[in-house]
C-alpha cells in the first residue's frame, strides 16, 4: 500500500492543475461573456481597438 503515498499526491496534483486552470479562466474573464466569445470565433479579424493588446 506504499504506492498510495505516490498515487494520492499524484492525483491531487492532477486535480490541482485542473483547479488552477479553472481559476485562471475565471480570472481572465472567460466566463464574463460566454455568448460573445462563442460568436467571436466566427470573426475574421481581431476587433478594432484591441490592436494594442494582441
Amino acid at each position: 500500500m506504499e504506492i498510495l503515498l505516490i498515487l494520492i499526491p499524484a492525483s491531487l496534483a492532477l486535480g490541482g492543475i485542473g483547479l488552477a486552470a479553472f481559476l485562471w479562466a475565471l480570472r481572465s474573464g472567460q466566463f464574463s461573456d460566454p455568448d460573445g466569445d462563442a460568436a467571436r470565433i466566427l470573426l475574421d479579424q481581431p476587433p478594432p481597438g484591441e490592436d494594442a493588446k494582441s
Binding site: 464574463s32 461573456d33 455568448d35 460573445g36 460568436a39 476587433p47 478594432p48 481597438g49 484591441e50
Partner: peptide, 26 residues
C-alpha cells in the same frame, strides 16, 4: 450575432476619441 458584434465594434472604434470598444453579447 457575430456580425452584430463586428459592426457595432467597428462603428464605435471609428468614432473620434474612442480608445477601445468591446461588446458583451451575454
Amino acid at each position: 450575432c457575430a456580425a452584430c458584434i463586428a459592426s457595432a465594434e467597428a462603428a464605435l472604434a471609428a468614432e473620434p476619441g474612442v480608445a477601445a470598444a468591446r461588446v458583451n453579447l451575454s
